[in-house]
Design a protein around this nucleic acid. Structure first.
Lengths: 253, 253
DNA sequence: CGAAGTTTTGATCAAATTCAAGAGTAGTGG
DNA sequence: CCACTACTCTTGAATTTGATCAAAACTTCG
């Protein structure tokens, strides 16, 4: 397929640059690793596959592996007081598996079938010590994660369920565009209960929110996983965005 | 005062280690910079002071400075649709000022009078290029920020105002302990409206939540800035925590 | 002592939760 | 290809809880 990303061996990290030249195209994501870094990483990384629904690691497990996601969707979550809280849906180009005091800080599972690289943490630390160029790129990636966490917080503060859902759809669409996938339809590989857990809503409230948007002809659900936006202005209006969620970021660091 | 941190020149970064030896004492924060790094940084950093209420930088300003907080409290926030969203209250040992595409990702202001180091971003980038040991420590710090963002998300999902407040108080107390300050009383340097903005509540709801906890004799407010916990078990119960908020973290990276 | 800025309190209203039951979708095996 | 079961999702009615708007009490501070 012409125009596709060229196939190179090894893990990738994609992110919007934190500093560096401001790009003409807004929020374009770039491959952060040099060819050399990718080759270097490829030597210590191995491909792993997970089936849909499979657990990748559990919170509090010994964190000895870092993962680089190649294909599929991974859900990062925690169970607090019997309630699942979803923090992020990880996609191709994302890194996960960082830890607090050598233990994973939350759980992850494959939401679709997943292909990723696993990299022993010991090897990563060695690379840092050897001053590979890697570390600055990891910083950039972390900043992006932080910005996303911030977007999430703004979303969660919204009181109306339709507002949260509209923001979520807007966000998904933008992420999809950043990955250069088609945007004629929004693809939602996760099920309703995961979305509800991400939005901090009950299943019932989420369902009603979907129906409300459909009833107003703002979106159309071809099926559970495929949604198209019929009235973008109305969606933005519902999402309450002066500055779209998509523009949010974080102070950090 | 004996037992105080020894005075050394230059910025500091404090965080819980992401990897490395698991410490006996839970979530102890450590100074991440070596003496050498601090001296190196001190050469390019200058002290700045801000008065209470003063703006430090605004979202979307050109991001040419990174800040290292020495003393005081800084509030990181964004205004979205006329509503202030507070993302974090930064304390001594925290870094802030990182950017997206060379612009600050949100606004910060001094909540108390503040002393910090400002470091030109250009110099920081130069240090990264020169492979100072700095970068790994920055990564560790970013992971901590991420974990905090996650705690915040869990807090925001709680429906009841008292639950959010209880989690917030618990969090503040733990942070205070990690800074090795006294914990006989929780010190809240920020005003009620900032807390409300952090908790995603209105001023009215927050006020009622405070009064509810006071009425149940779970906390005692000596004044607006000083709260003590009278009944820890009851507080934890209100906060809904099997695993206290304070234990939450993030998958990343 | 005012005057401005905060915080508290009260009444009404809107919206999400809860619980429970009903519809729709896969996926299995006959 | 059609049941049959398990699962996900939708819908409904009653309840809980916070937002809103507005006014009163409290704090600073000049």
């Amino acid at each position: 397929m012409p125009g596709e990303a060229k196939v190179t061996a090894g893990p990738t990290i994609h992110a919007v640059h934190a500093w560096g030249a401001r790009r003409p195209e807004k929020s374009a994501r770039h491959q952060l690793l040099s060819e050399r870094d990718r080759i270097r990483l490829a030597k210590i990384a191995t491909i792993v596959r997970f089936k849909k629904g499979e657990q990748i690691y559990l919170e509090n497990d010994d964190a000895d592996l870092v993962f680089s996601l190649v294909e599929g969707v991974v859900t990062a979550y925690r169970i607090v007081k019997d309630t699942e809280h979803v923090f992020s849906f990880l996609r191709s180009g994302d890194l996960f598996g960082l830890s607090e005091e050598s233990r994973y800080a939350n759980s992850t599972r494959a939401t679709t079938s997943v292909v990723d690289y696993k990299i022993p943490l010991s090897a990563v630390r060695l690379m840092f010590d050897n001053r590979a160029n890697l570390d600055v790129n990891v910083i950039v990636k972390l900043c992006e994660e932080l910005r996303e966490a911030q977007r999430h917080a703004v979303l969660l503060v919204q009181r109306r369920a339709v507002t949260r859902l509209a923001m979520f759809l807007d966000l998904q669409e933008h992420l999809q565009a950043a990955r250069r996938e088609t945007i004629s339809e929004i693809y939602l590989p996760m099920d309703r209960s995961s979305i509800a857990a991400y939005l901090g809503l009950t299943l019932a409230a989420l369902s009603r929110a979907f129906r409300a948007l459909v009833a107003k002809k703002i979106i159309f659900c071809r099926n559970r996983q495929h949604v198209s936006v019929l009235d973008r202005d109305a969606l933005s209006k519902v999402a309450d965005m002066h500055t779209s969620v998509t523009k949010l970021t974080r102070p950090l660091f």
